[in-house]
Each structure stands twice: as structure tokens, then as C-alpha cells.
Design a protein around this nucleic acid. Sequence first.
DNA 1: CAGTGAATGATAATCATTCGCAAGTAAAAA
DNA 2: TTTTTACTTGCGAATGATTATCATTCACTG
Lengths: 135, 135
Amino acid sequence: MTSRIEKLCEERSILLTEQRRIVARVLSESSDHPSVKELYSRAAAIDASLSIATVYRTLRLFEEAGILERHAFDGRESRYEEASTDHHDHLIDIDTGVVVEFQNEEIENLQEEIATRLGFELVGHRLELYGRKIK
Amino acid sequence: MTSRIEKLCEERSILLTEQRRIVARVLSESSDHPSVKELYSRAAAIDASLSIATVYRTLRLFEEAGILERHAFDGRESRYEEASTDHHDHLIDIDTGVVVEFQNEEIENLQEEIATRLGFELVGHRLELYGRKIK
DNA sequence: CAGTGAATGATAATCATTCGCAAGTAAAAA
DNA sequence: TTTTTACTTGCGAATGATTATCATTCACTG
Ligand SMILES: [Mn+2]
Ligand SMILES: [Mn+2]
Ligand SMILES: [Zn+2]
Ligand SMILES: [Zn+2]
């Protein structure tokens, strides 16, 4: 039961301590986009001695290694998810906070076009839709 | 020399104090997307007794009145600009921080389509491109 | 098993932002 | 014009998220 995150850590020769393993496990078992606080409480349920400082450190480490992606929906606190090979963007329900994922090749291509037209090499982007559920 | 922001304040019967007038003026004279700290120092150059708390309060007031737009590029500190009638999105130069504006009707339409398809009414969105200048 | 560098937990520090409050100011009422 | 009332401001404290510090512990090498 070696998670995908753990495999990636080995590839990048990131030392996998017990606490990092816990953070990795909690994240791979989360399908929502948990905040640091949420991650911390889920991880603390496994090992109560875990420090939130270590959670922050681990998240940053994983993010810089390209293993995780950080989001700051609407400029709020950071939320994380596993970086997947197939890129997607997000729609956030403004009433409930629920995050829905979507992919749109057309928009991705248009972004490339726009950047090129403006004289830039596109390095990344952030697309968030904010909406309200239609009953 | 009544700025557009001042006009909008009158329309919304927002009391225009001297400090609010200064914040309005500094913003209308800025074509970049200044952070609160930047706005504060530009405003303090006009009236040194101005408090940063008032700047924050004024920015929030104007934003809630739809007069300003707040951005949190890459999850960093808030930056502001005058809300214009013609919507645009941003490309940020990751080396210099320079912000370039662009408009793309096609992307806007696709966003509506996506939201609808997912069963949501699109209320807002955020699209940021991050790129590096091609020499 | 000792030696060295990295990782951890606890806590202090920092940064952006908001609050609380006493004092000032403007608009409404008398 | 006085009085009353409501809104604003500056200052500093409080907050919440994140990072830094530091003594201690851990992992790996020889
Ligand atoms: Mn996602
Ligand atoms: Mn803009
Ligand atoms: Zn995308
Ligand atoms: Zn747009």
C-alpha cells in the first residue's frame, strides 16, 4: 500500500519520515481539496503528536517537488490536492464551498494563444469559476 | 476634477471624506494593480496622517459598492484596480510581477457553457495566466 | 556505536487584515 | 443655531495564516 505520493518521493529522493508518510496518506485519501487545518486534524487523528508546523513544512516540500498543488480559492487559506498528470480547473459553489473539477481543452489552447500573442511563454495559469447551484 | 470613483460614490450616497477622496484619487491615477501597502504609501505622500486602517476600510467599502476590484494573484496580498465596465483578465510576468490585461470573448463564453453544463449559474470567475517574457 | 546533517515539536515571530474604542466630524433634528 | 445622532478616523491591540527559531531527536554512514 505504497501511495502514489510515496513513490514520487522516492523518485525524488525525498526522505519519507513517518509524519510525511501520514500527510501523504491523508492527502491521497482525500478527494475534496482540504485546507491545512483540515489536513492537520485528519493527520492528528492518526498520530496525535504530529505538529502543525510539520504539516506546513511537508506540504511546502511536496509542493516544491511538484507532488502537490496549492490553491487559494477566492484569496482564502491554502488548500491542497495531489498533482495529477491530467490537468483540470475548478468551479467553486459559492454557497457551500464544494469544489467541482472540470477540463476544457479549448480554453487551455486559447490561453496558450493569448500568452503567445502578448509575447509571453505560458508557464502556468489559474482558472476558477464561482457559481451557484441551479435547483 | 471629480474622478469617476467620486462620481460613483455620490451615486451610491457614500460619504466622501477627505481620506476617501485621497484613496480614490490615488487609485484612479494608478494604472498598475497596486497592493494595499503601495496604495497606502502613495496616499500617505499626500496626507501623512492617513491611517492604514482607513485605507483598508475604504478599499473594502469601495469594493463592496462595486467600485473597485480586488485581486489576489497567486494567493498573495490583495491588489486593487478600478472596476471597469469592460471586463478583462490578467497575465502576470513571473519574473517582474508586471501585470498585462487582456480580453477574450471566446473564453468568457466557454466558461458560461461549462458552468451551465455542470448545473451552476456562473456568478464570477478568475483567470490568471503566468508567463515569462519571450526575448 | 559515534558522528553528522536533516527532521521534528513547541513556540515565538511575522505578515496581512480586522477590531475596539475614544475622539472628531458631518448630517439631521429641534 | 444649538442639540442630538450617526458615521469616520487614528491608534493600537487582536486575529489568523504562515514561517522562523532552536533545542531535541532521528536517520544514515562509516
Ligand atoms: Mn482539483
Ligand atoms: Mn486589470
Ligand atoms: Zn486549466
Ligand atoms: Zn474573464
